[in-house]
């Protein structure tokens, strides 16, 4: 680990300025990702600007119906918050499926969003990696690929974004509140993370020095029935091979009136499954249509030799999660009525 300076910012704009002014400065949240990277030599900031004492640690209901989550709210606190558990249980589930109790106690909302890929080569400074050192090559292209992308990758990088929380936030249409030295702006979560393209060194659209101050969730009644399903190699304390966050609302006739689907473990960003949503909306809620929607989303999947199974896995996980949220939505909304094969628990 390199020697580094440690500073505390006075306020959000000041923190943003401190980092913006120094290309070798970084914000310090819980440190569970950044400090690991410093130990591994993956990151070598000269200045850490600690922001954890800034007053960004509240979860509050917004007047127009949504909820605002401060950037410093710890993952454990967010998962346990009554507003979240009641109105956005999918977010609680996603958080609780991630990491371990100890890590969640430290990890912050912003830090979780901006955690970097777990690609083993990215974390190993003795191997080439375009994301860590642009232009050196991608070791994963012919290497260990079990946890790599099947959607939206490029020849320069096939890594995935590892966050569970971000997948739920993507299904919930969250907005990310960003402060730079001068102004505040809002970035829709679906546009925060990038696909790798030719510049895999950039995970997000943020500029150096942009500080995330909050995440806002819109009012979304159907989120009450949303669910998170995480498929992994170990029963706990493992990153997703594939994960699905889904919400559904049903019309009076039992058909799908609205739906949100996001996927984790499949792409360089939390993957909003717009094609699947499109295929489902305004039609009957049947097992066939759930499966067809999953197929539609994965039509463009380009698996790697080491992760071909993830296409079938994602398809099945999407279908199963839709089946589950459909059952929840029917129960919750009190819509009886025939649901086709959707009501069968396979």
């Amino acid at each position: 680990m390199n020697p580094f300076d440690y500073r505390r910012a006075e306020d959000a704009a000041g923190a943003a300025a401190m980092v913006a002014d120094n290309p070798a400065a970084a914000f310090l949240g819980g440190g569970t990702n950044l400090v690991d990277h410093m130990k591994l030599g993956v990151a070598a900031p000269e200045v850490l600007v600690d922001i954890t004492h800034l007053p960004m640690d509240e979860v509050e209901a917004l007047p127009e119906g949504g909820v605002r989550i401060g950037a410093n709210v710890r993952n454990s606190d967010l998962a346990a918050h009554p507003l979240i558990r009641r109105r956005y249980p999918v977010l609680s589930q996603a958080l609780l499926s991630g990491a371990s109790g100890q890590l969640r106690n430290l990890a912050t909302t912003a830090g979780n969003l901006l955690q970097r890929t777990r690609c083993v080569y990215f974390q190993d400074t003795s191997t080439p990696c375009n994301k860590r050192e642009p232009g050196t090559g991608c070791s994963a292209l012919e290497g260990y690929q079990r946890y790599h992308a099947i959607l939206g990758a490029s020849p320069d990088c096939v890594a995935v974004h590892p966050s569970d929380m971000a997948v739920a936030l993507t299904a919930l249409d969250a907005q990310v509140v960003v402060q730079d030295a001068a102004t505040e702006r809002r970035v829709p979560i679906a546009r925060l993370h990038r696909l790798p393209g030719e510049a895999p060194e950039h995970d997000t659209v943020l500029n150096h020095g942009d500080l995330i101050t909050a995440v806002e969730l819109p009012d979304m009644p159907m989120a009450v029935h949303a669910r998170y399903r995480k498929v992994r190699d170990r029963a706990s304390f493992a990153f997703a091979l594939v994960s699905v966050a889904a919400a559904m609302s049903l019309g009076a006739d039992g058909s799908v009136s609205d739906v949100r689907i996001a996927l984790g473990g499949v792409a360089h960003k939390p993957w909003r499954a717009l094609r699947a949503e499109e295929a489902l909306r305004d039609g009957p809620a049947t097992e066939e249509r759930f499966a067809a929607a999953a197929r539609a989303e994965l039509a463009e999947a380009r698996p790697l030799p080491g992760n071909t199974f993830k296409v079938a896995l994602a398809r099945s996980a999407i279908t199963a999660t839709l089946r589950q949220v459909h059952a929840e939505a029917r129960g919750g909304d009190g819509h009886g009525g025939p649901g086709g094969h959707g009501e069968e628990q396979r």
């Binding site: 777990r118 083993v120 080569y121 974390q123 190993d124 003795s126 191997t127 070791s139 012919e142 290497g143 260990y144 190699d233 170990r234 029963a235 706990s236 304390f237 493992a238 990153f239």
Partner: peptide, 28 residues
């Protein structure tokens, strides 16, 4: 769970930490 992934191109184990080299956790 347990499997060390030796990347023959380099000659070393690439999943060399407990997040990547899985050992049964309590839930297993």
């Amino acid at each position: 769970h347990e499997e060390s992934v030796l990347d023959a191109r380099f000659g070393h184990v690439v999943n060399a930490d407990f997040a990547e080299y899985h050992i049964a956790a309590n839930a297993d």
